[in-house]
Design a binder for these strands. Structure first.
Lengths: 149, 149
DNA sequence: AAAATAAAAGATTTTTTTGTCTTTTATTTT
DNA sequence: AAAATAAAAGACAAAAAAATCTTTTATTTT
């Protein structure tokens, strides 16, 4: 569904947002540990998110990453996905046809149109804030129980 | 969504089935041409489908691939996907958690459960036969118009 | 100003996926 | 039986994705 890059981007964003809700700025080391991702790779991904103004990064001592409350409210999952994976998931044909459309439909065109539409709706309607509060409240997790300390 | 391998597997199966409906056996060269796929790679994939008894292969002159009518009726898309991609698409967590579940849900668990369920339903309810007849009747296509001769 | 901290940038490396090439095996036709 | 045909098998290669390492830049604290 998502690339590894995208999975890490979403999880890192949620973690940063949840910590920002508690007024805590977090460093790459902590983020990577909390979401069970490779540190250097995650750093690269955060650079992309930062350039797309989806997270704020602050250099130097007491630096790290944070997301302002208004930003996490307005940021939808779709923006994160688009920043790292492009809009393939929103538009690509399920069977890889270059120009799959109602006029030139692949055998799964109609079936997949519905699913792709549901995915798009979900990503465009889900805010970073609601995902962060779910994590903060202990309802959801960013790692499997096995992976937790 | 699907790997390239899986896209080729599905398209090749549909093409073989559609030709079998007209009592025509087809060779790799023809298949690869008709679905715009790399020939040698497609041959490898067909070996897997053949070992899984999803297509019949016949060696020698007038040989090639075919699918019996009863088989294309009973074969669901899910069987083809499982044969080449495994069951990742049916069970994997959207954010890559090893043990994402109702007890230990990732932030997108509930939202994705619905989508994954829809995908599973679609793949398990769609038969190769209906996809093949759609192609035969000219309602659907395996290549983009640009790619067609 | 110097030292320490933390992210940014850039160059590489590893792994996985995708794709190719050559040889072998099975089958059919002559 | 020999020649021709077509898939199977196996080894290899290229491209893309995932991951790492080193150096630089910005900021803060002492």
């Amino acid at each position: 569904m998502f690339s590894k890059t995208c999975e890490y981007a979403i999880k890192a964003s949620i973690y940063i947002a949840s910590q920002s809700l508690e007024n805590k700025r977090v460093g790459i080391k902590e983020i990577a540990h909390e979401i069970s991702s490779p540190e250097a790779f995650t750093a690269k991904i955060l650079q992309v998110l930062s350039k797309n103004h989806l997270v704020d990064s602050i250099k130097g001592p007491n630096g790290g990453f944070e997301i302002q409350p208004e930003k996490m409210r307005s940021t939808k999952l779709s923006a994160i996905v688009k920043a790292v994976d492009g809009d393939n998931i929103f538009i690509n044909c399920g069977l890889g046809l270059k120009n799959c459309s109602a006029k030139n439909p692949c055998p799964l065109h109609n079936q997949f149109a519905k699913i792709r539409n549901d995915i798009t709706k979900l990503l465009e309607s889900t805010s970073l804030e609601e995902l962060a509060t779910g994590l903060t409240s202990g309802l959801t997790f960013l790692t499997s129980v096995q992976n937790q300390a």
